[in-house]
Design a protein around this nucleic acid. Structure first.
Lengths: 353, 353
DNA sequence: CTGAAAGCGCTTACAG
DNA sequence: CTGAAAGCGCTTACAG
């Protein structure tokens, strides 16, 4: 008997064959009675169910998984729960997965391209499919992967590769957010956490920019179409994400005497830091400066003042991503698909709501 | 060939036997060459590795798991990522698990006792062990479970059952937090989100209170040992957790003309709501009212004013819980153990720091 | 309606 | 150092 270490549950672990022996039938009958498959006489099924309950039988999902070539698990690989809208997105994925009878293995990649690639390409996969929120990995790197299981890339990054994609409309959202400020009379709008040009903040040839790059582009587009210039000194904190960074960047602007009447924070924590700096300097929000932030707004409503946010539709992202993934797991082999999900502006006090 | 649907990867899926055939050796030799077990001649190993790479062989972790009676996965069952300190705790669990070579299946129970119980007792388990953050399930219910795999309960809830436990020292933390306010001269301290007596907010016979109940008890103990009475009208929002609830409860106190000079919020969002209500009423923090909140403080530092928090040591909780679980998975069969992890007070502006 | 047997893709005691 | 074979706990085509 070539076995590994004693099973955790010890020799008391009940197998299907034990139930079969107790009832006096074959394992096939037990399997069919328990799963409701095949044709089992009522009387036999009852005896099987009774014996299974009596003995405390629990089916082994690993054995079943080996047989079915399917485990009912999917892997959700994302940079970190605290990153961008990962936490609410993950929550939405759990909800959707549960509705489909799937379990979720959460794998934080820490934004490490090696781990991101391994999530798709790796050899430790026990899941039937992978949902990847790429951060650092490039489209080129992913294009070379040979996924062990179907994969779907989701989020703002425009990566390319052998998988379906769900993109959040970040460029459009950046434009919408900026326009909301323009519409309220702002003419000098600080872009906090973004970049003023294609080169900075973008990773590849413009098609592979991160969320910040795309949102920045939307900002610039809104300014241009509004007849306003992109003022480099108003674009600060490129790549920053933390409240402390936002605070420092805005404090520096104020100390330098740079004038502005609007502020678009590309990540929610940046806005909290910005408000802190503005408050310290005695600058009134929204009277002197109007503020909009990207985020999911769990606390934005209770900041002082409450912050207008541009919120991603994580529920749609999760739902669509899982639908596409389930289709692939189910055997669909058509061409790779790309879908887009939106953002919603929630007006609060920081824009004068 | 009694097979289910065609495997996802199609007929191209390479098995160990394919590699063996390509090299002209047995599967045993391939297995040992790939795993570095047994004695394989260098020359043979090289040929096996080359063939495996050439063919794109990926080991099947499910088959390996069936054989080893171990999958290298654990299940983390918690109410919801947005609940209490679940998100940072989950992040700490991922870190610790990764360090031990384990993957984590995250299972939100939504605070449903049936699902909490199923996480320990269920029959769909593919994990080697379970980390449960109980919410609604009672100790009595869990005591009757027959875990399929080892389990560890963690968090503020004092549940009992056939597993190890890690408790956060919530009663002690409640006392420490209250004392911080007393030490700063507060004499009328609002308890936001808690209860004034044993009956309310506690679930069982005092040994099974949730975090709010335990923290409330610490609050009362601090008052009593400070020679102050527990004033029922200062205890509001029993069971509340959301910013909106905190805002409403504090607004009601202010509208009713109730006087207070300190406030202990049992959940961080409550404090953000409270600050909002205080600001609206023109009540100065910390001059007129000092505020302390339980929380992990990711945004507390950027509220207006920044909020003093009592923060759980999630890293210690995760580390100890996994250590205990790994011990059980490894076969340790000693008596159930209970460990305790602490909280740290981080002073910020809301207490005059 | 039911049983005996093969097979899922691995690992490993046993015998060379 | 290596192979043939059994076994992990299930599911299911095949033959009664």
């Amino acid at each position: 008997m070539p076995r590994g270490p004693e099973p955790v549950a010890g020799p008391g672990r009940i197998r299907m064959r034990d139930v079969a022996a107790a009832v006096g039938v074959s394992v096939k009958t037990v399997s069919e009675a328990l799963n409701g498959t095949g044709q089992v006489r009522d009387r036999t099924r009852e005896r099987v169910l009774a014996a299974a309950a009596e003995l405390g039988y629990r089916p082994d999902p690993v054995a079943r998984g080996l047989n079915a070539a399917r485990t009912g698990m999917i892997c959700l690989a994302l940079p970190r729960l605290g990153y961008g809208y990962c936490a609410p997105l993950a929550a939405a994925v759990f909800d959707a997965a549960r509705g489909m009878g799937l379990s979720v293995v959460l794998e934080p990649t820490d934004g490490d391209p090696v781990r991101e690639r391994a999530a798709v390409d790796g050899d430790t996969r026990i899941a039937d499919g992978v949902l990847l929120v790429p951060h650092a990995v490039t489209g080129r790197e992913l294009a070379a992967t040979v996924p062990v299981t179907p994969a779907v890339a989701m989020g703002p990054r425009r990566v390319d590769g052998p998988f379906d994609r769900i993109h959040s409309a970040d460029e459009q959202a950046g434009e919408t957010a900026t326009r909301a400020l323009l519409d309220r009379g702002c003419t000098r709008i600080v872009l906090l956490g973004g970049s003023s040009g294609e080169s900075a903040g973008a990773r590849g040839a413009g098609t592979d920019a991160g969320a910040a790059g795309l949102r920045s582009r939307g900002y610039r587009r809104a300014l241009v179409s509004g007849g306003l210039p992109v003022v480099p000194e108003l674009v600060v904190g490129d790549g920053a994400r933390q409240a402390g960074d936002g605070r420092a960047a805005v404090a520096a602007l104020l100390a330098a005497g740079v004038r502005f009447d609007g502020l678009l924070a590309l990540e929610e924590p940046l806005a909290h830091g910005a408000l802190h700096a503005l408050r310290t300097a005695g600058t009134a929000v929204p009277d002197a400066v109007r503020v909009v932030a990207f985020g999911t707004g769990s606390l934005a409503g209770y900041a002082t003042p409450s912050i207008t946010t541009v919120e991603p539709d994580v529920s749609a992202m999760a739902g669509r991503a899982l639908a596409l993934l389930a289709g692939r797991i189910g055997g669909y082999a058509g061409p790779w698909r790309t879908e887009r999900t939106g953002y919603t502006v929630v007006h609060r006090e920081s824009t004068g709501a």
